[in-house]
Computed example of a mutant assay.
Amino acid sequence: MYPFHMTVIAPSLGGSLALGVIGVLVLVVGGLLLMAIARRLRAQEKELASLRQSVGERRGGLDSVDQELRKLMTPDAAESVSALQIAHELRSPVSSMYQALDVVLQGYTAGSQEVQVEILSLVRDRAGAMLAMLNDLLYLGTLRQAEVGKKVLPVQLLDVLWKVVPEFRIKSTLRGVELELDVPDSLPLIGCTKDHATQLLSNLIDNAIKYTNPGGKVNVSFRAERGFVVGTVEDTGIGMAAEDLARVFDGFFRADNAKEIEPYGTGLGLSLVKRLVDLYDGQLELESELGKGTTFTFSFREFRGATDEGSTVTSGAVA
């Protein structure tokens, strides 16, 4: 019976040793895996910290340039040749930064996609705002040049309106704002250029939609009145405080309630509108009440052909 007893004990001992070895191997492999995971997590944390620092530096750079622009680019300075050159120089690197950050947002870089979207979206918004500011500065420069060699061409304001309306129909729908048009079938021509008339209408209508809360209305109307063409853009939006009305056409000025809706606006849109109207000897009036809405009314005298002082008419065609 003794040999039989030894035969039973031997496999039991061997099984225990095997299980022990396997257990040790599991612990070793598990430890190695945990170490590898820990190293990977530390590497990702380091990479993320580096990304945050890089983004912070870029945002700081944007803020610095933004402050310098607002400090140095007064409305008068914006019209100078040097300011125009600065705008051209800054536009290219800012545009490149904008495109590069957009690539990051598309997920082509390493690291945490969620965190990158959260952080870099802020930088992209600032870059977009700076691009808008530079575009406005460049446009102010072209207005200054237009004063030197001004061309006055026959423009049909209705044609310009029908050209920009589709874009603003989409914007008003997305904003939840009703866009109403109250215009006649025909109007006398005015003297300006089609590009400037487009910029004028676009700025006024875009502002009205942007600063009108969902459920509100924007109304655009034209009429002929005693030798003038009169246009009105009226909204039921946030309106302006009485103390802001005197500054609304100043370059870079933005009311506090406007900043709440659009934090990164340029503050140059209405300054452009005023200069466009003045360029062609028009009139611009503003009525606004805080919390109730704003009405802009502009008027230009009817185009009189070659008798308009300083006019340049080509082939008698409408511009």
Rank of each mutant, 00 (worst) to 15 (best):
P3E: 08
P3Q: 14
M6C: 14
A10T: 10
G20R: 03
V26M: 08
V28I: 11
A49D: 15
S50D: 11
S50Y: 06
S50M: 12
R52L: 15
V55F: 01
V55M: 04
R59M: 11
G61C: 14
S64E: 01
Q67N: 07
Q67C: 07
E68K: 00
R70C: 04
L72K: 02
M73C: 06
P75V: 08
D76Y: 14
A77S: 15
V81I: 07
A83S: 13
A87V: 02
E89F: 11
V94T: 10
Y98A: 15
Q99L: 14
D102L: 04
V104S: 02
Q106S: 07
T109L: 09
T109F: 05
Q116N: 13
S121E: 06
G128W: 06
M130L: 09
L138R: 15
T142W: 08
V148Q: 05
K151R: 13
E167C: 12
S172Y: 12
R175G: 10
P184Q: 11
L187F: 03
L187D: 01
L187Q: 02
G191Y: 03
N203F: 11
N207C: 07
T212P: 00
K217M: 06
K217T: 06
V218Q: 07
E225K: 15
G227M: 12
M240N: 03
A241K: 01
R247V: 07
K259I: 00
E260H: 00
I261F: 01
P263E: 05
P263Q: 08
Y264A: 12
K274D: 01
R275D: 06
L276I: 02
D278A: 13
D281C: 12
E285V: 05
L286P: 10
E287C: 12
S288W: 01
E289W: 00
T295E: 00
F296P: 07
F298C: 13
F300V: 13
F303C: 11
R304C: 14
G310F: 14
T314N: 04
